[in-house]
Design a protein around this nucleic acid. Structure first.
Lengths: 148, 148
DNA sequence: CCTATTTAGTTTAGTTTATAAACAAAATCA
DNA sequence: TGATTTTGTTTATAAACTAAACTAAATAGG
C-alpha cells in the first residue's frame, strides 16, 4: 500500500515532467500568426503581453515579461521595424513611452489566441464534463502552487 | 447554454495559457542541485537526458534534447569542465563517444528528481484520490496531443 | 526656486544557448 | 578499393537575454 503510493507519486511526477518538457518545446520555434510573418517565441509573447486594450508603458511591459527594461527596448525596436507595435509619447509624462499594437499586431494577437482556443477545444473534446471541471481545478491549483 | 460553453472554452484556454507561462518561467533560471553548483536550465536538462543508467552517445543525446550535434558538443564540454559528465571512447566504434554522469553529476540528477517529486507530492496533497486520477489522465492526453 | 534624487527608457558590451555549414576521421556499401 | 555515410568537432553567427553606464524628465525638500 505504501509502496503503491510511492510509485504513483513517481509516475505522476514523471508525467508532469514530460508535460513540462513538451510545453517547453512547443513555444520554442518561430511560427506565423495572422498577417504577421514568422514570429519568434519572445515576439509573440511580447505581443500577448501588450494586449488588445489601451497601450502599455515600457516599464509595465518589463514587469509583465519579467525581463529588464533594456530587453524590452530591444524587442520593441524589432517589433516596430516589423510594423507590429507603435510607440507614442505619453502626454502626461514625457519620460515614458506608450506601446500599443498596430492592426497587424492585433491580427497576430488574435491568431495566437485562436491557436490556443483551438488547442483547448481539441483537448476538451476528448474529456467529459466532469473531467474538464476537475482538470481546470487542478490547473488552477498548479498555477497557485507555481507562483511561489 | 451555447454562450456558456464558449466562455468555458475561453477561460479554460486562458488557464492553460497561464500554466504554460508559469512553467516556462520556472525552468528559466539557474538553480543549485545536489553537490553541483548552480546549473542553468539546459545544463540540468542535459543531465536529465543522460540519465543514471549506462552512457549515451552524443548523437543519441542530440536526439533526446532535440538540438544539433554541435549544440551537444558545446554543452558537454561545459559539463565536463564542471566535472558533471565524462566522455569515454566507444570500444565498438571509434568514431563515437559515450557520455555518462560522474558521481557529482548523479547527485545533481537525483536532487533534480527529488525537486520534481517534492513538487508533485505537495500538489497531490491538495487533491483527493479521484482528482489525482483524473488529473493524471488529462496530463497524459495533453502530452499525446502535444506530440503532433 | 533650485539642487539632489528618483524614475523611464536607451545604449553598449558581454553571456548563454542555439543553428548551420564546413570539416576530419572512422565505418560501411557496392 | 573507392565512394558514401555516419559521428563528432569547429567556427561563425543569431536570438534573447543581463548588467552597468548613461540621458532626460519628474519630483522632493531645504
Amino acid at each position: 500500500m505504501e509502496q503503491k503510493k510511492v510509485d504513483r507519486t513517481k509516475s505522476g511526477s514523471q508525467k508532469l515532467g514530460q508535460l513540462i518538457l513538451l510545453l517547453g518545446r512547443l513555444e520554442k520555434h518561430p511560427h506565423t500568426f495572422g498577417e504577421a510573418g514568422p514570429l519568434t517565441p519572445s515576439e509573440i509573447h511580447t505581443i500577448d503581453a501588450i494586449g488588445m486594450e489601451r497601450g502599455v508603458l515600457m516599464s509595465e511591459l518589463a514587469n509583465r515579461l519579467r525581463v529588464t527594461k533594456g530587453a524590452v527596448t530591444q524587442i520593441i525596436v524589432r517589433l516596430e521595424d516589423k510594423n507590429l507595435v507603435e510607440r507614442t509619447p505619453n502626454p502626461t509624462d514625457s519620460r515614458s513611452v506608450i506601446v500599443s499594437l498596430t492592426e497587424k499586431g492585433k491580427s497576430a494577437f488574435r491568431a495566437h489566441e485562436e491557436v490556443h482556443l483551438h488547442f483547448y477545444r481539441e483537448l476538451s473534446s476528448q474529456l467529459d464534463e466532469q473531467e474538464i471541471e476537475i482538470f481546470e481545478k487542478c490547473i488552477e491549483k498548479l498555477c497557485i502552487h507555481l507562483q511561489k
